[in-house]
Design a protein around this nucleic acid. Structure first.
Lengths: 165, 165, 165, 165
DNA sequence: TATGAATGAGATTTCATTCAT
DNA sequence: TATGAATGAAATCTCATTCAT
């Protein structure tokens, strides 16, 4: 549900009220329950939606490693600029994942894919410790999620230190 | 309240119940209200407590810049290892700061100090873009908060790319 | 609806859900509403079904009074053994009859017939107070409904005290 | 809670609404929850209250068996006349006991005590099959619960067939 | 300072029923 | 005849907060 997604960005998972979701769509609370059995299920759907959106930043496979990495970072910067709420929602979900198994599944799935892509790129680039560089990128992106205006600068750094080598 | 701090780490700000805080201390709910007027006030106290703990990683001022940076990163790594809950709580507070002004005050205060220290160090080290490096460090630390086991690797990267220059 | 009957025996009238009835028959809830307008109507149908089943224990009219009574008690014992759920359902209906007029109609109709038969038998047997004996039998049967394993013993007592006279 | 007891007699366990109970006492719904954690707990309390009331019909131990039995039946008749709702509630509870363990505990406890008393009496009276007579009495009383006006007649029969021997 | 009782606002969920197809 | 989607009314329970003691 897109409405739920937008509401999470606005009021957080904690402030998410089924009533508001239903109102945003213009239907009754019970009608919402007709489509989504439980609140947890709705949150899980939001989590999977977010994971799918993030997956769009994966670089095309036909690019050379260096270009692929640049393309990926560019896509991330672009997404942060165009849809900052997505990253807010992701931050909320990361926290919720600690307690909600179905959210955890979605979050971990997305992260595993991301990690695989990055590690592959850094390995192809001949990095001495690809896993470590991967974690640095992931951490930096996660850490800058709540400050979209700083994201370009941080992402640029990630590319720069890389090219600098 | 230390009890509240521990509970936030365990069940999150969303799951924080005044009743449990009171029970953890062994007093009645109403007695808790005598010491802390409102729940928001308690959360604010937790936020300030967290900020104070983080401030302990600031490097001693008498060190040379390079040593100071290393000391700071070491202190962070140490803190992550010894008190991982602190970082969980910080992640919760970052999210809450978006909506709760008093939490925001504490979080922004701590972050401003941190930013000042880092920028000072990177400037003293002759970095071309000290502000950018600062944001990278902050983002990376924030991003690795929920995965304490990855923290050493990420912090090592931050030191390495730095020294590598 | 047989499905409703079985469900009442299992989960009680209170736990009866139209959705489950529909599912048991393999049709949609709305389709169920096509056949049975309202839930009360379905319950009334169940009540009439139960009354009809109980009516099968009426003794054949051609028997001598003593044999007829014995036959009736035997038929009851047989029914309790073969279809204990019927008596569970009857107990539920007795309670519901206090508030639902159409259930009351079915229950009272069945009971009036039963009472007439018993009174007739006891009168023919020359009992001093046929009405009282009738009520004893009815009460005993009703009272043993929820404990089918005790029924044979109680029914035997009814026959014994009777014959003992 | 007396209010809950009265309401069960009126609208049945199925129709019991915490709101009404609270209203009957003149307190808020949440205040009711403050005293009784859950609805099931309230029902269990009602069950135990009913069991306690029924226990008052146990005959004094100093009486001779025949007198004790008569006293017990008299006490029952008296209770039916004075407090017919108690028996309505008991009928409700018997049905609920099939699904609610805590109600079952109360109901079975009361019934076990009753059964013990009756069996003791019938044994002392030299009945050939005391257990069977016990079950007849229990069943008859249970069966006449919902028709208090018939109770005297049925109870008289129980005494009569007994004395008739 | 401490507490127990009380409260009100609100949240999720259930369920019989209806409407349009 | 059958259905899926929609609904509204209601029910239980939670929780921060307040009041009187």
């Amino acid at each position: 549900m897109r409405a739920a997604f937008a509401l999470v960005a606005e009021v957080g998972l904690e402030g998410l009220r089924l009533r508001q979701v239903a109102a945003a769509v213009g239907i009754d609370q019970s009608t919402l329950h007709h489509h989504v059995a439980t609140k947890a299920e709705l949150v899980a759907a939001v989590a999977e939606h977010a994971a799918a959106l993030l997956a769009t930043t994966a670089p095309p496979s036909h690019l050379a490693p260096a270009d692929a990495l640049a393309a990926h970072l560019d896509a991330l910067a672009d997404l942060v600029a165009r849809r900052p709420e997505l990253f807010t929602v992701t931050a909320e979900l990361d926290l919720r994942a600690r307690r909600d198994p179905s959210v955890r599944a979605a979050v971990e799935g997305q992260e595993a894919g991301w990690r695989a892509v990055l590690t592959g790129l850094f390995t192809a680039l001949g990095e001495p410790d690809p896993a470590a560089r991967t974690e640095l990128v992931i951490a930096a992106v996660k850490g800058v999620r709540l400050a979209p205006d700083l994201a370009p600068r941080v992402l640029a750094q990630l590319g720069a230190t890389d090219r600098g080598k």
